[in-house]
Write a protein that binds this DNA or RNA. Structure first.
Lengths: 225, 225
DNA sequence: ACCGCTATTAGCCATCTGGCTAGGGAGAAA
DNA sequence: TTTCTCCCTAGCCAGATGGCTAATAGCGGT
């Protein structure tokens, strides 16, 4: 937590973000003698993984949403070649689901892009020191988001169920997929409908999107054009 | 299109983005003697509108997604106090819908944040010169996005129908709301299902979210906590 | 031990859904 | 003109949905 001492060797960073402007901004910000040094940059996940062994940065700042393989996927793959890598996820989203995905995939920290500079610096230092910082705005946002529905967040089981509803599965199929009876599936769907204040499953998944419980899977794949 | 001459007076800019890091990056990037000058910055829409008259920037770089009032809303309000303001929208999204919203609200240009520096510079110059540049990645992305579904984008009527499906309306209600018969409503729903390759209306709206045809209405409102 | 929450199963039933087939009219493109 | 697409309407039907009530069981907190 202490301010950077001139005596401390700089924390060596790799930046991965497909927004060139953001990357340049970060590089500029972090290369201003505050105890950081940007040793590598990449605008996509594959390159980042290729660059890692060459530079062995202390901490990697990794954007969640990128074209090609996204941040979470990049993280997973990076973990295979560098299990000890310290990765701080950067994101524009403040949804709890994104954070959960990132942390589950093995992120060492999670910071939204709307943080102030100091928060970012602190987060990087904390990751470097072995902590697992999570941007406070995430916590602040994610709680009321669900609380505001007038309701309860869904139970784990119910979340599985919405995810399947989203894919167009019927109650019968949901039951089969989860290894439970159709009746139970219906009961969970009913729970979801009530908690999300929806009149049918269609509105329920729309609400789930609104609340950030479900995320649009951008199917763009950036084809060859 | 010409490279910046030293003789040209700099284009005076206002930056509006709630991502402090991005803002700092832009400021740094644009303040490097390339013919731009950042005269004002803000991390929210209200402040931006308040700052405008004081600085009368030549071009305003406005982020689409911000907490509080978003970019489009900011743009609309700004237009009321400064109808001639030149505004270049900046966004992380490459969805055609977002672009349409921005341009409809009176944006002078639209650029995704994953552009290279030069493209951004060019876009700013073009807006300043009275053009209406649109980031090429938007066009490239948005076309195949819909084409990739195997299909056609939805007809206007069908889009109205998905929007209603999303709200949980039944075919009967959709018919009543649109002043058409239930049968016709069903026909439109069928069209949507086919075009979005969905097995039921629930999956259809999920797909619509995936494709950017529907946007999550973030109901967060950022309460006091 | 009791209570509350979650997960599980079950039956009944009015309504809704989506697929099928089969029309007609209006405007735009070839 | 012909053809195409979009928009509108219609009936039939098997299957799915969501509301209702009711019961059992595990788990964690008081």
């Amino acid at each position: 937590m202490g301010p950077p001492k001139a005596s401390t060797p700089p924390i060596r960073l790799m930046l991965v973000d497909d927004h060139a402007v953001m990357r340049a901004g970060l590089a500029n910000l972090l290369g201003s003698g505050l105890g950081f040094e940007v040793v590598a940059q990449s605008d996509d996940g594959e390159t980042a993984i290729r660059l890692w062994p060459k530079f062995k940065p202390d901490v990697c700042l990794l954007d969640m949403t990128m074209h090609g393989i996204d941040g979470v996927e990049t993280l997973s793959r990076l973990r295979k070649v560098a299990p000890a890598a310290r990765v701080l996820m950067l994101t524009s989203s403040d949804s709890a689901e994104d954070m959960a995905r990132a942390m589950k995939a093995g992120a060492n920290g999670y910071v939204t892009k709307n943080v102030q500079h100091k928060e970012l610096f602190d987060a990087i230092r904390e990751v470097h020191a072995g902590g697992r910082p999570v941007s406070s705005s995430t916590i602040i946002e994610s709680r009321p988001t669900t609380a505001e529905t007038g309701g309860s967040p869904l139970t784990p089981r119910e979340i599985e169920v919405v995810a399947l509803m989203r894919e167009g599965f019927t109650n019968q199929e949901i039951g089969r997929l989860l290894g439970i009876s159709t009746h139970t599936a219906k009961a969970h769907v009913a729970g979801v409908l009530e908690k999300l204040n929806a009149s049918d499953r269609t509105q329920a998944v729309a609400r789930a999107f609104d609340l950030g419980l479900l995320k649009a899977a951008h199917l763009q794949g950036r084809p060859k054009i």
